[in-house]
Design a protein around this nucleic acid. Structure first.
Lengths: 353, 353
DNA sequence: TCACCGGTAGAAAGCGCTTGCTACGACGTC
DNA sequence: GACGTCGTAGCAAGCGCTTTCTACCGGTGA
């Protein structure tokens, strides 16, 4: 029924070995022979059997990209860039990688499940994007899983996620965002404008990204002499989505009606915050300033346009893709920190009085 | 080095066959034996070799989901839902599907490439989402490829894409959106409000989605006696992104400064349109109305909130996922049309005068 | 002219798993 | 007490490919 290597070989009047070599292009084959084989492949519409090939060669061309939320452009952009970068990668014809993205939904269990599935497929590489959950058990489990992947020859690259504690060896390269620095600069911007009562709508408490951004914010606040217990009251945790930003902002307003600025965990949350503030009759930035993080495409279109920290998601994703295919050498020490740029737009201004 | 089935068998003091059967759970194995095998699997931290298993069984647990743009929530939502639905699917332990999403970037070539790659992996199913490119050559190539996939046993399901001409047999199920009907109702809404000079910012000319939505729009216009050649002048094609919506709207305004409403190909484009109108000093909806399509999450947050056609992306994706895993029976005739609901919000109102 | 060599192609041994078929107790039945 | 029968487990033959090792051929330098 299905066409096999042997069929092609028969048609081209060569041995299966030769066909394999033509297809893999890593062994000298006379031009005339190659030609004949290629023609047979074409005529028979032959497609290599991936599993068989993977089994025999003990390698595969599958690359997994794990994301927390596939419906979130933050991940979509990185994943798309990574996938694209891999497509470019290999020069040789059949060398296509099957770059696939797996949606963990932010669940560490699903993350582990996907890692196992990829391990099962003997994936060539795995790219983990986004913040990690900070839970000792899961961190250890993840580290162990990554270690097993690594010594099965799978390349492991982290994109926008800090190095996994205890998995140092296993990781090919880690591209981490300077969330702390970005958070600090963002709040410094607000402080410079004259704000003193600044609320913070944070992401889920147990995520690294959440913690780092919040730490940056607090560092800035403390440096301005605004530290202390009050900060906790002005921080509300939630999910990284619009709805959560909306609710958290309402809660923030309830706790401190005299806020002059709200910093959101990311742009999506900031959008929710804006909606909440508007619904409360507050004008942005006249009555209250709002700032986001990430600079997703829609942020410039928000009304008013969002002040935020731009993360080079596209570049980071592309680089992760190249790292995963081995097209690019890992940074010295395996870890590279990627900074974010403060982008000041219309959603932040001087406080009212 | 790596643990194999045989190692597990040795440790559990049974034959490899028995281990395989325990793992696959499709053959009676005595409870005590099963127990022993499972313990060995655990102790050895054994992970099945996917390629080997796929080769021997001539099936795999890979399911591919093809999307046009992974950074676009329209696709992200469907893909996420599909992936999630597959996770639920199988009751049995090892029955996890590796649902992966592949980003074609809207390129028919890449789509074909991914289909080949999935065919090579002997994927269990393939889900194609989003509109197709209407090009005779590519349509034929796609139909042929789908046919080959189908008779290699791969389930093919279409989600938000019309049936592929010439691939009827090959397709397990097609879930198509009623883009035409939605487009018509949207424009009818505008007409009812009293608009007569309505511009249309369309998507790429050669896509089915674009054509269907536009046809719906025009059907409504013609029914209102507003058909004819003028329609072409009031239609500008572009990509399905914000930037394109911005530019196209400017062009539209240039052609017909007296427009009272703009219908956009989708919500993202509508956002760009809003930005352009605002930059031209027009107020929405006082000076001009704007409508989108899809009802993506951010649409309700736009200022003003976007009037649009809600597509049940989540449900469609989930259903596609179930269809792909065989959890749900295909609709009669293999094709189901999914309607969209008109959602009237603040971005549309009566024309100025 | 002959041994040797670079360049190509083939033979065959797996890669790790699944599964049809066989084997073998332990029962139940006539 | 002999013989089906049922429930379980093992044997062994591949699945389709890669790759090592071997073989062959025409040309070359001695």
């Amino acid at each position: 029924m299905t066409v096999t290597l042997a069929d092609v070989a028969a048609r081209a009047r060569v041995s299966p070995a030769t066909v394999s070599r033509v297809l893999n292009g890593n062994y000298p084959v006379a031009a005339a022979t190659r030609e004949r084989v290629l023609r047979a492949v074409d005529e028979l519409d032959y497609v290599l059997n991936g599993p068989a090939s993977a089994l025999a060669a003990a390698t595969s061309d599958l690359v997994g990209i794990l994301v927390n939320d596939i419906a979130d452009p933050f991940f979509g952009i990185m994943a798309g860039a990574a996938q694209h970068a891999m497509g470019e990668g290999s020069g040789r014809a059949g060398g296509e990688k099957l770059a696939v993205v797996c949606n963990t939904g932010g669940s560490p269990e699903r993350e582990l499940t996907y890692l196992t599935l990829l391990q099962r497929q003997r994936a060539a590489a795995v790219v983990l994007t986004g913040g990690a959950v900070e839970d000792a058990v899961h961190t250890a489990a993840t580290a162990a899983k990554l270690a097993r992947l690594a010594d099965a020859g799978t390349r492991v690259v982290l994109c926008g996620r800090p190095p996994v504690p205890g998995a140092g060896e296993a990781i090919t390269a880690a591209l981490t965002f300077d969330n702390r620095g970005g958070g600090r600069r963002l709040t410094e911007h607000l402080l410079t404008l004259g704000h003193r009562r600044i609320g913070y709508v944070a992401g889920p408490a147990e995520r690294t990204t959440t913690r780092h951004r919040l730490e940056g914010h607090r560092a800035a606040m403390e440096a301005a002499g605004l530290g202390g217990a009050g900060l906790d009251r002005l921080t509300v945790h939630g999910r990284y989505d619009r709805r959560s930003g909306y609710d958290a902002t309402l809660e923030l307003l309830r706790r401190a009606p005299d806020l002059t600025a709200v910093v959101a965990a990311n742009d999506t949350v900031a959008l929710g915050a804006c909606a909440a503030l508007r619904d409360r009759g507050l004008r942005i930035p006249d009555d209250i300033s709002v700032a986001g993080f990430d600079d997703l495409p829609f942020s410039v279109d928000a009304v008013p346009a969002l002040t935020t920290v731009r993360l080079p998601l596209h570049e980071a994703g592309a680089r992760a893709g190249r790292l995963a295919t081995g097209t690019e050498a890992p940074p010295p020490g395996g870890v590279a920190t990627i900074g974010g740029d403060l982008v000041v737009r219309a959603s932040t201004g001087r406080p009212a009085a």
